[in-house]
Computed example of a mutant assay.
Amino acid sequence: MAEITAASVKELRERTGAGMMDCKKALAETNGDMEAAIDWLRTKGLAAAAKKAGRTAAEGLVGVAVEGTRGAVVEVNSETDFVAKNEQFQDFVREVSKLALATDGDIDALKSAAYPGGGTVEQKLTDNIATIGENQSLRRTAVLEVAEGAVVSYVHNAAAPGMGKIGVLVALEGSAPADTLQQLGKQLAMHIAAANPLALDADELDAELLERERAIAAEKAKESGKPANIVEKMVDGAIAKFKKESALLSQLFVMDNKTPVSDVVAQCGKDCGQPVHLKAFKRFQLGEGIEKKQDDFAAEVAAASGVPQPVA
């Protein structure tokens, strides 16, 4: 059996919000497998769904830039929030966001792009690391474009214009007036920042993710003790609910919490007399999916939980 350390208990607790002893038990039940332990806690109703993806686990900034009907979003990481407030770091994020507009979302192309003043983006980043004295990385980028319409950007928790903790791009197609598209796009982007949809519609949801959700729902339903046919209906209902809540077009608009986003877009088209199509979106949250470095107070956690620490 794998050794359950205080550090792993602490990580699981941070990622799920479950109690310390529940986390310890989950790791014991799953032989120390972190992802399996998360699923185990969820089947017992002890963890929030998919909390990992929404957790900020690294410092730095997300930057956005829009030019015409094209928009780009980038994530640049740093070790501390202090560096994210540094003017030199912010200048870099601002310039890289603009350069990303020409790269089609290719991170390697962005790193090798010419940086204003000489050298490449990657070389400039290396120089910044040397002068600022802290490790930094250009992690990812994405680009959206429409033939006719608008790409609208939004930054949540802005540290400076065009950069913050969450960056969103919304691509709207159609010949509606520019101000109408901008207003709708901004509202949709704010919704996306808050609701964190996983796909545009249910058909685009990741098949592996759905299978994982189905397995969790099935385990929960079996514990109800109901007949197999009822359990199957419970699972189907749970998956239908998950799809509805995870796909942008079927989510309830945060502005009124009752109208599906698809209806909001359709109504905008009716009001202006021109069809409007929500083509795509991108949402970058700073640090999502990156594991945090463990802090040095694992001994304190161990003392509270009774979990032995490994001997160095």
Rank of each mutant, 00 (worst) to 15 (best):
M1Y: 13
A6T: 14
A7K: 12
S8C: 00
S8W: 00
L12C: 06
G19L: 09
M21S: 14
K24N: 04
G32C: 04
M34D: 00
E35L: 14
A36V: 00
A37C: 09
R42E: 13
R42T: 08
K44S: 11
K44V: 01
L46R: 12
A47Q: 04
A49L: 14
G54P: 00
R55Y: 12
V62P: 02
T69W: 00
G71S: 10
G71Y: 09
A72H: 01
N77W: 05
S78Y: 07
E79F: 05
V83W: 06
A84K: 05
Q88K: 15
Q90C: 12
S97D: 04
I107A: 11
A109P: 02
K111Y: 04
S112D: 11
A114Q: 12
G117V: 03
N128A: 09
A130T: 12
A130Q: 11
G133S: 09
E134V: 10
N135Q: 13
R140E: 06
R140I: 03
T141E: 03
T141Y: 08
L144Q: 07
E145T: 14
E148R: 12
V155W: 06
H156K: 10
H156R: 06
N157R: 13
A160G: 14
A160T: 11
G162C: 14
K165C: 01
E173S: 15
S175C: 05
P177Y: 13
D179L: 05
T180G: 00
Q183K: 15
L184E: 06
L184W: 03
L184I: 10
A189S: 09
M190E: 15
H191Q: 00
I192M: 02
A194M: 07
N196L: 06
P197R: 03
D201L: 06
D201T: 05
D206I: 06
E208P: 01
L209M: 14
A215Y: 06
I216M: 04
A218F: 12
A218H: 13
E219A: 15
A221G: 08
K226W: 07
P227D: 09
I230N: 11
E232A: 15
K233M: 13
K241P: 09
K241D: 10
F242C: 07
K243F: 05
K244P: 00
S250E: 15
T259E: 07
T259P: 04
P260W: 09
P260Y: 08
P260A: 10
V264G: 04
A266L: 08
C272Q: 02
G273V: 12
P275S: 07
L278K: 03
R283Q: 07
R283Y: 03
F284A: 03
Q285D: 02
L286N: 05
G289V: 08
K292Q: 15
D295I: 12
D296K: 07
E300I: 13
A304F: 08
V307Q: 02
P308W: 03
V311G: 14
V311W: 07
A312L: 06
